[in-house]
Nucleic acid binder design. Sequence first.
DNA 1: CGAGGTTCTACCATTACGTCA
DNA 2: CTTGACGTAATGGTAGAACCT
Length: 281
Amino acid sequence: MGFDDHPCNTGLVLGLGLPQESTSPPKAHNPSRFANKPSPNSAPTSATFEPSLTLGLPGEPYHQLVASNYKGGGNSHEEAIDLYRQASSPHSHSAVSSFSSGRVVKRERDLSSEEVEVEKVSSRASDEDEDGSNARKKLRLTKEQSALLEESFKQHSTLNPKQKQALARQLNLRPRQVEVWFQNRRARTKLKQTEVDCEFLKKCCETLTDENRRLQKELQELKALKLSQPLYMHMPAATLTMCPSCERIGGVGSEGASKSPFSMAPKPHFYNHFTNPSAAC
DNA sequence: CGAGGTTCTACCATTACGTCA
DNA sequence: CTTGACGTAATGGTAGAACCT
């Protein structure tokens, strides 16, 4: 952003200390290698979580959720429900499949036999895509699926292969879809956090601009005061400080403060409006 | 032991689909 | 009915780490 270039640069250092991870958090690669350890960045960023509503039981298979929640539904999810009802049967993954067959082949190598079976079904269904066109169909996750994924994301923002498998089975989705959802979810979280950071920095910038303006004004006033007040004429300029809040001129040193109306600033100090509204007092 | 290849995953930018006003 | 905006599932590419030869 180039804060150093900002026209109101007063030498103040702006420190953005958010409890949130930075915009490029350290990557946690290969969680599969540490399947039994918590992922390094598995702790969700609580500040950015939207509240989520969980309707289903965590252990409840997805087709049960669908059946129980959408009996006589008649809403926009009906189509998706049908898709997932179909998906519950072994030969009907086509509705949710837009899988690239090349990836399937690549991934099959190390998948567990169970997952391979799922993936094979998916790829076969994909090949048989209704009209034979390769147009990808976009799946719309149901509320229950989203809720469960959200729940899971709150617990850990990344998944190890076992967790992914379990979640996929629970939701009646392919592991790849769960993986993608988590990727996109992390991206959304990050985007949201970036927006928050941006807003915060804008406010900082505004505050600092105001502060700079005010300090300039004070400086002008001090200069005028210095010219009009013979009392100050023998005082070195550096010994004068003024409290920006109460606008009183300080004395020399802290111990001399009681004796003298002036204060000596031990060193140039800039105060932070966010942590110290009136550091000079 | 180091080099090169393979595999896996996270992340990113982008695309494209579904929904809604 | 059409259209544009928006949310988000999905894709393709890249980089880093672990493992293998």
